[in-house]
Design a binder for these strands. Structure first.
Lengths: 344, 344
DNA sequence: CTGAAAGCGCTAACAA
DNA sequence: TTGTTAGCGCTTTCAG
């Protein structure tokens, strides 16, 4: 609904058409460049549009075209430490390809995930990027729902046992390497702070930790672990519990970004210094990690690559790619600094 | 398009109606609860929906209802350090009220802002939350466009001279207070690292800085300032330039989050320690600021409040509030730690 | 308590 | 080169 300078109310393409003295279909074709139009009438149409300030109704367009040029992005905002850069790259690639992003927060809860993705599907998104919620225990109702709607989908951040494209970081090897580093430095009383249950990520990182410990021949009884639920508060509590042990650990592996913050806070609350009193390494990097003390030794994920490639894969599916589904692992890289106890 | 177990293709409400042996309008009313329906026919309809896995087409619904239940959120992802928590609270409030969020990145560029908001309007969003791009030099084409579309809008993060609702942090007083603190500690050779040009934020923070300096009776010649363009790289470069001065500053006020990171990095690159060699205070807080050294003394913005109230205001406008436009200042609070040079 | 039918504003096949 | 017209799938008035 737009008024022009003569006070008329111009709402639709047909209004523009009438003013330009042509048919609605001609206006449509001018706007979309979908068929040849005589230059003089093109001018007339453009003039009418210009003078009325007409904007086309994308809803009607989408309904008619069966295409919305919209991608759904469903992710747990809170539990994803990389939320910002992830959204940033995804938005960038999507925009370049002419797509908009509708955001939805799964809150890492299967029930909310299902509801929220339901509304995305109702909105007729052309494709979906999903960081699946944990805790669904093998039932994939949400994913089945997406499949039933025939909406192209790619999973990010966590692998799931479901036939679709998936992009997630490698976890096992990197954590094993991180842990081995602590072991090589002589630590034996070592602890892992693991993430939320039900995430493939959590399992793989925990397994990497135990693999390193086993290879080093450390007795299982020396090894501790606590659940940090993938949040800063959880990490804080987990570390606090570890400090209650009769023989607290001398080295910690924190399995994600948020928990690492919590762990540091708990350590500081207890008056302990890193790495002097306790060594600490963590999965996920921080932009500021090089500038503040302790400078954390981490495994940095390449979220940018993950996000960009996931969108690209999705766009390919949308235009009809029928390549077999693939799981892509993105390899993190180690940022060796001083929180592990190594000199600068 | 959904297939049921008998292999039929069920697409529309009318398909469901046919299967249930009722009219399309009845199905609609069952789905929306918009008129009384005999219980037995309600059951029939629900059964038909259930058995076919029918989902309604929200696009068609929106077109018919002239309402999309969608809010646009346009913001510069990169230049907003609080992007994550802002999106998080906005999404939360919006979802609770039954709205979805479509995201757009302005890249802090008037031209891109205009394009991107154009597509949001075309999509018939019910309302818009916008962090206006800087550098538009008094021309408000984008805002005029939004107004012409009669789409309710609220501005966040930065005030603009335009008649609409606005929420932004207080800048002048808080920066003045931050600067005064440094002055009280005896610093005279003091420098400000200011943000991107064209932002009201930048101007107000700079003015707060100068006001404090003036009140303390410090000669203007003692005072330095550099532009950090609101980014980490910019802050890094600005600090590096400052260190080239014949007489480098002994205290720094960094005007945002990202620049503070850059400043710290530059200081570290130069082998300088905070606060031993240089005192540093910054606008914007960090979640981890309490756990790493130096622990930054900052002015923490209350983005949560800003986001939540902005959405609420927008929702009010959508349902027709005609209260006069208002500008709301959100007061930051000081986090006094040790980077300013004060003991713990 | 229910159905028929007229839109919502656009696209695209078909005809001219 | 252009116009007519039949949808896209839903909501909602108006009749019954």
């Amino acid at each position: 609904m737009t008024g022009n300078e003569r006070g008329e109310i111009v709402t639709t393409m047909n209004d523009v058409a009438r003013i330009a003295g042509v048919s609605g279909s001609t206006v449509s074709h001018v706007l979309n460049g979908t068929r040849a139009v005589r230059e003089t009438t093109r001018i007339k149409v453009l003039a009418a549009i210009e003078s009325t300030g007409y904007r086309r109704n994308g809803l009607a367009r989408s309904l008619a075209m069966q295409r919305t040029q919209t991608l759904g992005l469903a992710i747990s905002v809170l539990s994803n430490p990389y939320f910002g850069s992830l959204v940033n790259t995804i938005e960038k690639v999507a925009t370049t390809a002419g797509y908009n992003i509708v955001l939805a927060d799964t809150h890492d809860d299967p029930e909310r995930e299902s509801r929220t993705i339901g509304t995305l599907l109702d909105r007729q998104i052309d494709g979906l990027i999903l960081a699946p919620a944990g805790g669904s225990h093998g039932r994939h109702d949400t994913l089945e729902m997406v499949r039933a709607s025939r909406t192209p989908m790619v999973l990010i951040d966590r692998f799931l046992d479901f036939p679709c494209d998936q992009y997630a970081p490698e976890n096992y090897e990197p954590v094993k390497r991180l842990t081995a580093h602590l072991l090589e430095l002589g630590h034996r009383k070592i602890a892992a702070i693991i993430g939320a249950r039900g995430l493939s990520t959590t399992v793989e990182r925990r397994d990497g930790f135990y693999a390193a410990v086993a290879e080093a021949g450390v007795e299982r009884s020396q090894v501790l672990f606590e659940e940090g639920h993938s949040t800063a508060e959880g990490g804080h509590a987990a570390m606090a519990r570890l400090l209650q042990s009769v023989e607290p650990p001398t080295a910690i592996v924190s399995m994600n970004n948020a928990m690492t913050i919590g762990v540091m806070k708990a350590l500081r609350d207890a008056g302990l210094r890193v790495p002097r009193d306790v060594a600490l390494v963590g999965f996920d990097d921080f932009e500021w990690a090089d500038s503040f003390e302790p400078r954390l030794t981490t495994m940095a994920q390449d979220v940018e690559t993950m996000g960009a490639e996931a969108v690209q894969m999705l766009l390919d599916r949308i235009v009809g790619s029928d390549a077999p589904f693939a799981r892509h692992s993105i390899a993190p890289f180690m940022r060796h600094r001083n929180s592990c106890g190594c000199a600068d």
